[in-house]
């Protein structure tokens, strides 16, 4: 790995992931990835951050997140977790820019930049007013109403999807269906079964 770093400013290591995080990063609008010197380890996506689906209940492979492995081997290199299944491209590009310009961003107790993961989805949800007026979505395709009866994990999930949205700001899980809590350390077991009211 040291030899690799001599020739390459960035090492992109894919473990048990599905390439989704790499593909998501390709959706970055501005700026593009270039000339980045690696001083910290960035755990991209929920698998690398906390184990995610490969480490879910039933797993037989012993898959683990980077932080846990570092703890196990006494590795002290600072880690930034950018969970999400996949993570949003802006969270990666924004964190790297922050690293270059201002250093390590402020992290929450789960190692995530507060800048992107500091706000609760439910508390900021555009459907919150509807909940206050007892308007609940009756099915997953109901465009109106709070999605909590459908299993939405928004109340237990912190990320800025509600304002950043996805794919050039076109849509996001809650307007389309429900949040399944994919940025949380307990994903997927903490929110599965996904379609049952929590």
């Amino acid at each position: 790995m040291k030899k690799g770093l001599k020739n390459h400013p960035v090492l992109w290591i894919q473990g048990q992931g599905c390439t989704g995080c790499s593909v998501s990063l390709l959706n970055s609008v501005e700026p593009t990835i270039a000339n980045i010197l690696l001083k910290v380890i960035i755990a991209l996506g929920t698998c690398a951050s906390y184990g995610g689906i490969p480490a879910a209940k039933g797993s037989v492979t012993g898959a683990k997140g980077v932080t846990e492995i570092f703890k196990q081997y006494g590795i002290k290199t600072p880690t930034i977790n950018l969970p999400g299944c996949p993570m949003h491209p802006d969270w990666v590009v924004g964190s790297i820019l922050h690293l270059l310009e201002k250093g390590v961003p402020e992290l929450d107790a789960d190692g995530r930049p507060v800048l992107f993961y500091g706000e609760n989805i439910h508390e900021n949800c555009p459907h919150l007013d509807e909940l206050d007026n007892d308007i609940m979505a009756k099915t997953l395709s109901d465009p109106k109403g709070c999605r909590m009866d459908q299993g939405c994990a928004g109340p237990n999930t912190s990320a800025d999807c509600f304002k950043r949205k996805w794919n050039s700001g076109l849509n996001w899980c809650v307007d389309n269906s429900i949040c399944i809590g994919c940025v949380e350390p307990g994903f997927p077991d903490a929110s599965s079964p996904f379609y049952v009211a929590k």
Partner: peptide, 12 residues
Amino acid sequence: ALLGGKMPHVSG
């Protein structure tokens, strides 16, 4: 994403 919610990994 317009119909599936987001991509990769659609919610829809």
